[in-house]
Nucleic acid binder design. Sequence first.
RNA 1: GGGCGUUUAGCUCAGUUGGUAGAGCGCCUCCCUUACAAGGAGGAUGUCGGGAGUUCGAGCCUCUCAACGCCCACCA
Length: 881
Amino acid sequence: MTATKINDLPTVYDAKATEEDIYKFWEEGGYFKANAKSKKPAYSIVIPPPNVTGVLHMGHALDETLQDILIRYHRMSGYETLWVPGTDHAGLATQNVVEKNLAKEGLSRYDLGREKFIEKTWEWTNKHKGAILDQCKRLGASFDRSRERFTFDKGCSDAVKEVFVRLYEKGLIYKGKYIVNWCPRCNSAISDVETEYATEQGHMWEISYALKGESGAIIVATTRPETMFGDVAIAVHPSDHKYSELIGKTVIIPLSGREIPIIADEYVDKNFGTGAVKITPAHDPNDFEVGKRHNLKPIWVIDTEGKMKACGEVPQQFHGLDRYEAREKIVGLLSYENFLLRTREHEHNVGKCQRCGTTIEPLLSEQWFVKMEPLAREAIKAVKDGRIKFIPDRWEKNYLGWMENIRDWCISRQIWWGHQIPAYYHKVTGEMVVAKENPDPENYVQDTDCLDTWFSSGLWPFSTMGWPDTDSDDFKKFYPTSTLVTGFDIIFFWVARMITMGLEFTGKAPFSTVFIHGLIRDEKGQKMSKSKGNTIDPVKIIDKYGCDALRFTMTSLCTYGGQDIKMSEERFEYGRNFANKIWNASRFVLMNLDGVDDKDIDFDKLTIADKWILDKLNKTAKEVNENIKDFRIGEVAHILYDFFWNSYCDWYVEIAKIQLQDGSLKLNTQRVLKYVLDMALRMLHPIMPHITERVWQLIPKTSGDAIIVSDFPVYSDTFDFPKEAQEMELVFETITSLRNIRQSFNISPAVKCDIEIRAALKEKVVFEAIEAYIKRLARVENISYADGSAPVPPKSASAVVSASKIVIPLADLIDLDAETARQQKKLDKLLSEKKSLEGRINNPKFVANAPQELIQQTKTRIAEIEIQEKNITDLIKSLNS
RNA sequence: GGGCGUUUAGCUCAGUUGGUAGAGCGCCUCCCUUACAAGGAGGAUGUCGGGAGUUCGAGCCUCUCAACGCCCACCA
C-alpha cells in the first residue's frame, strides 16, 4: 500500500475511493487462495451457487456477507480456509432466458434444434457466468476465484453421471409412469417441492351421471369438469348407506356416453361434496391410486400443453381447446342438457409452477425418479445424532418432518439445458442401458430428458472438491465442508439433497453446521421481487453508502432466531455512520501517534483509564469469539459497535487527550491508543473488511503485512483489571451527574466553573484520584471539598450556584449507598448460585452420573464466581472506607 | 388438518441459563469544546398482546385465549 500523510486524509470516509483498491490488494496478494497442503486445520464453505441468470440481490448480499464473515474470522484464527465460489446452470431458468431472446428474433428452440440451442445457451452462459460473482467482489467476498466452479462444467458433469449410474445400479433410480406435476408452459415435469399452492376462488359443480338401464342417477361433485372424459369410475365410500345399492352398477358419462362402473373405495369422504367422486387416474394423483387399486386403465384427455386431447374419448367439439376454455364450454353444455344440478362457489388450493406461476396440471407420464426413503434414513440419523446441526435448531424439526415423510423425487425434466440423463436406448430393440458413456453411438440413442437442476447442486459440496477422485488434494483437505450458510427457503430443495447425496457417496455429512438466516423483505414485510418493484439493489447501496456500511447494517440486523429482516434504504445510514466514526477516530489516533514505538504497553505506567479500556477490550474479545462461534453474528456487530463508539471513542479517546498532554504518560497512552485501535480493527475486520484494512495499513510500526491475515484477538487474563474497571464506572457516573447538573442550571459548556463537593472527608480520596478526568470532561476549573456534615438537601436541585461555583452534596454526584447496595445484591446472587453449584458438586450421585463436561463446567463456574466475589467485596470495602 | 414463528418505547427490533427493561432511528434542550454535525453533551418515553399458574422473584418457565405471518398436507 502506498504511504499516505495522515493529515491529508479526508474528514469523511470515502468508501468508493477505498474499496476497489483494497480488494485488488487482497486479490493480488493471493490472500484468498487456499492451500490444500497446509498443515493448519481446515475450514471450508461452498457458496450456494447463484443462478447464472441471476442478478445480485439483497438475499445474496446477506448470504455472501455471512459466509465471508465466517471465512475471514477463521482465516484470522489459524485455519486454512477455503471458500469455493461458483454458479448454477439453472436448467429451466436459463433455458427460459435464452428462449426469450430467441423469441425476439421470432425463433423458438425447436427452430434451432437441440444441438444448436445448447450451443447458443453455452454462448449466453459463458458471457454471463462471471457477472454475479464479479458483483460479489463488490461485497468484499474473499472467495478463492481460482477454484470457481459451475454446476454444468466437466467436473460436475462427471460427478452427475457417476452418481446417476451408481444410484441406478443400486436400484435407487427408476423410470416409471406416475402422476407428476406438469407445467404446461414450461412443458416439463417438475418436482413436488417446485410446486407451490395458492388458494383460489373456484367453483364446485354437481353433475348427474345417469344409471345405465334403469332410471336414476348418481350425483358427483367436481372442481374440474373438463377431466370427466377421462373418468374411469365413480367412487363412493363402502359404508355409505346412501349409495350402498349402487355399488357395482354402471353409469354413463354425460356428453360422451361412455360407460363406467360405480366402485367402493375408502379414499372417499362421505361428508364431502355429494359423497361420490369421479375417478380420473390420468389427471389426479389420488384418482391414480384408486385406479391402480381397482385395475382401471387411465385415460388421457389433456395433453402436455394443457389442451384437450384429440382422442376418441373426448367429443370432437372440444378437441384442442385450452383446459379452461373447455371447462367453460363443458359446463355450459352440461347445463343446457340438464346434467348440471348445482354450481357452488368453492375455495380450493391450486398448484402453481414455482418458476412461472402457471397452474400445474397433474399428468400421468413416464419420468425418472430417485427412491428417497432408503437415502433419507441415513440423512435423518445424521441430524438426529448431531453429525449435522441446524442453527437455529428449530429448522431441524422442519427438516426431519420432511425427511420422515419423504416422497420419491422426480428428477427428469423435458428440457434441453442441463445434464442429459445417461440412459441409452437401442434404436431397434429399445433395450435400455444406463452408463456414463454411450455404449455404441451407432445403435444407441440417449434419453432426451435432462435432470432437475437440484440434482447437480445436490452434489456441490463434493463435486467441487474433485469427487469422484477421492484422492484429490482438495477433497482430502477440505471435505467435508464446515458450515453451510443459506436461507430457509431452500432447505428442502437443496440442503436436504446435499445431505442425502453426501452421506450416500462420501459416507460423510457434507457439512457439520447448517446456518440458516432469515429472508430480506421490504419495509412492509413483503418479499422483495422485481415484479413488485420493491427491490433494493445492493450494488446501488454499495455505491451510495459503501460496502462495509452495507455489511455492517445487514449483520447487525441478523438475530439469533434467524428472523426475516425488514429492509429500507435509510437503514444503511447506520453502517455508514459507524464506518465514518471508525474513520475519524482512527484519524485522530493516527495523528497523535508521533513518536510512538513498537514496544509493548508498559503495565507499570497504566492509568486507571488505561486499565479500564484494556479490560473492556479484553472482555469484548471474549464475547466476540463466543458469539461468532455460536453464530450470533448480529450480537457481534452490536458488541463491537458499543465497544468502539461508546467506550473507545466517547470515553477513552477523550481521556487520552488529557493523558497525551502529560509528558510522563504520553508514550504509554499512545501505545494503548494504538493497541486498542489495532485490536478493535481486527475484530471488526470480518464484518467491515475494507475500512479496517485501509486504516490498519496506516498504523505505524505494526507487525504483519495485512489485517486480513493478522491474528484475531482472543481473551487473555493478563488484561483483566476488574477493580479499575469498576472504579472507572464511578468516574463516569460522577461526570455524567456533573454534566447533568450543569445543564439543569443552564451553565454554558463554554464556561469552566468551580465546584465544591460536600461530603464526609473520608470520601475525598476517591475523588482526588480522578480529579483530572472530572476537570476536563465536566469542564471544571477547581475542585474543593467541604465537610458533608453541612445540611444535605434533597437531590439534584440542591446544588447551589453562585459566581460560577457550584456547591454540590456528594449524594448528588454519586449515590455511594445505592452503589453499595447494588454491589451487595450482586454479591448475594453470586453467593446463592455458588451455594447451589457447590451442593451439586458435593453430591456423590451427581458426580457419578453427570457427564464429565457438565462437572467441568460447574467447577469452572465456581472458580469464576470466586474471582468476582473477591472483586465485589474489595469494591464494597473501598466504597465504605 | 398438522407444525413453526411473531406480538417489548412513536417506528424497526435486541433481550443466551428466571434477579430492579435495552439499541438504532425519531423526539426535546444545549453545543461548530482543534477526530468526527454522518458529530458531542444532557433528557423524555414502556401495567414487555390478554388472562391464569409455578416461584421469594416472570419479558423469559407452564397452561389458555387473541391477532398477524410462514411452512407442510391437499377433501374431489
